[in-house]
């Protein structure tokens, strides 16, 4: 489903070239639960951003759902992100003036989906992520765990091919983090593909497949 071959990405930092990714090859199958671990600067976030089409590789090709997405235009990338990628961020990234329900709905609104078609999907998402009673609350009236659940529901709203979570528990206490992880795992159990970037080995250990990165290269790929 996701096929990266020879992906390299170089940044210029203070006039010096930093190789964030060096010729990474990676395949992710449908329904996989994958964690990417490694110290900061190992390239794990860059890899996730490239998978999420927020960043472009300097070399290499990226196939998503058997389609080469390496050379798409900016607008086409936006459309693919909208339809196939669900992002979950460390800092939630909810729009502060919108309610929980409006935040969840946002990708559908941007996609121009009819309100009549949005309503049942929204109701289902609110129920699925236990947010029915918080639907009318704004982010500042929600707890961290609730915020992240809203973010996951938003990521799921367009029925994406893959959920990409960048340190989803990094801004939560341990207990809430476990709970949010449980929500992501439920997405996986229901057949979704989940990629989690984390530096926490305990969280990484919960996934079926564990990628370890160092200096822009995948150094370990364990399953089971």
């Amino acid at each position: 489903m996701i096929r990266l071959s020879g992906i390299a990405r170089t940044f210029l930092v203070g006039g010096e070239e930093v190789h964030a990714l060096r010729a990474v090859d990676l395949g992710i199958a449908h329904g996989e639960y994958l964690s990417i671990m490694g110290p900061s600067g190992s390239g794990k976030s860059t890899l996730l951003n490239i998978i999420g089409l927020l960043d472009r590789p300097d070399t290499g090709t990226y196939e998503l759902d058997a389609k080469n997405v390496t050379a798409l235009s900016d607008d086409e990338l936006a459309r693919v992100r909208r339809e196939k990628i669900g992002f979950v961020f460390q800092f939630f990234h909810l729009v502060p003036r919108l309610t929980a329900a409006q935040n969840i709905e946002l990708p559908m609104v941007l996609a121009g989906i009819d309100p009549a078609a949005r309503r049942p999907r929204l109701a289902r998402l609110l129920a699925e992520y236990g947010l029915e009673e918080r639907a009318g609350h704004r982010p500042d009236q929600l707890s961290g765990g609730q915020c992240q659940r809203v973010a996951i529901a938003r990521a799921m709203s367009m029925g994406p091919t893959v959920i990409l979570a960048d340190e989803p528990t990094g801004n939560l206490d341990r207990h809430t983090g476990q709970e949010v992880l449980g929500v992501l795992e439920r997405v996986h159990h229901n057949g979704g593909t989940v990629v989690v970037v984390t530096h926490d080995p305990e969280i990484g250990a919960r996934s079926q497949r564990r990628l370890r990165m160092l200096d822009g290269a995948v150094v370990a790929d364990e399953k089971g």
Partner: peptide, 16 residues
């Protein structure tokens, strides 16, 4: 700015 980043991430085009 960060909201604009989010909107772009969830599928808004530059034109949007």
């Amino acid at each position: 700015t960060s909201e604009i980043g989010l909107l772009r991430a969830v599928g808004a085009t530059r034109r949007g």
